[in-house]
Design a protein around this nucleic acid. Sequence first.
DNA 1: AGAGATTTCTACAGTGCGTAGAACACTTAC
DNA 2: GTAAGTGTTCTACGCACTGTAGAAATCTCT
Lengths: 128, 128
Amino acid sequence: MASLGELERAVMDLLWASQEAATANTLRDLLAQSTRSAGGTAGHEGKDLAVTTVLTVLSRLERKGLVERERGTRPHRYQAVSSRADHTAELMHEVLGSAPDREAVLARFIGSVTATEAETLRKLLGHS
Amino acid sequence: MASLGELERAVMDLLWASQEAATANTLRDLLAQSTRSAGGTAGHEGKDLAVTTVLTVLSRLERKGLVERERGTRPHRYQAVSSRADHTAELMHEVLGSAPDREAVLARFIGSVTATEAETLRKLLGHS
DNA sequence: AGAGATTTCTACAGTGCGTAGAACACTTAC
DNA sequence: GTAAGTGTTCTACGCACTGTAGAAATCTCT
C-alpha cells in the first residue's frame, strides 16, 4: 500500500517540509507554499490548481493513512502522520520484505551504496 | 518506474525462481510452473489463466525492461533481466533516493532492522 | 441574514493492469 | 506441401487509481 501519484507526492512534500512547525497546516497554508515553491526541481508545483483539487488529494492521502486531519478547528488542519524519513524507511523495509532472500538483497544494496552512506551506516550499526 | 501488478509480480517470481537454469524459459515452461506452484502463499497462481494473458504480461514486463526475450529461437525464450536480489536492491535505492535527507532515512531504516540483518550488514560493511 | 471561506459530493478523462478473443506466423507430422 | 498444433501479435474490455475540478452544502464573521 505504497505508491503515490505525482500530485499526492507533491502535497506530501509540502506537509513534510513544514512538519516541524508547531502549527499544522491549513489548506490556505498549503496553497501559499505551493505557489511559492514553484521554481523547484519537481516542476509540478505552482501550477495554479483548483482549491478542490488539493482538498481531494488531501482526502485521499488521509484515506491512505499518510495524512491526519484535525476536524475540531474550523479551517481543518492537515499534517503528515509520519516524517518523510520514517515513511521512506518504512517503504524501504516493505521493499526489502518483498523478497524471500533478504540477506542477498541487503548484500546487493550495500554493494551499490556511496562511500559516504557506507560510512553513515557503519556508524549507525556501531562496531561489533 | 517500479511497481508491478499482482500478476506481473507472480510472473517475475516464476522467472526469478528458474533464473539459474541454463535454459531460459519458454511460455510452456512458465505455464507448467505456474500450475504446479499453486499451493504457494500468493494464492494467485494456479488460476488457469489464458495463454495470451501470460504473454501480454510478459510483453509488458519486457517493455518495462524487466524481462528479456530471445526472439531467435522459435518458441521465444523469456528471462528476467536481473536477479530478484538485484532488482529489489535497486528498488530500495530508488526509494532511498526519493528523499532529500538520505542520511536520516538510513538512520530510521537501520533502526528497525532485525538483529540478524544488522549482523549481516556489519559483515558486509566490514572493511572500513 | 448575507458574504466569503471551507468542505463534501460527484464526476470525468487518462493510465495501468488483469483478462482474453481473433487473427496471424511458424513448426512439425504426415 | 498441406493440415494441425503451437506460439505470437493485435485489439479490447472492465476496473481501480490519479489528476482535475464544478456544484452544492456548511461554516464563520460581521
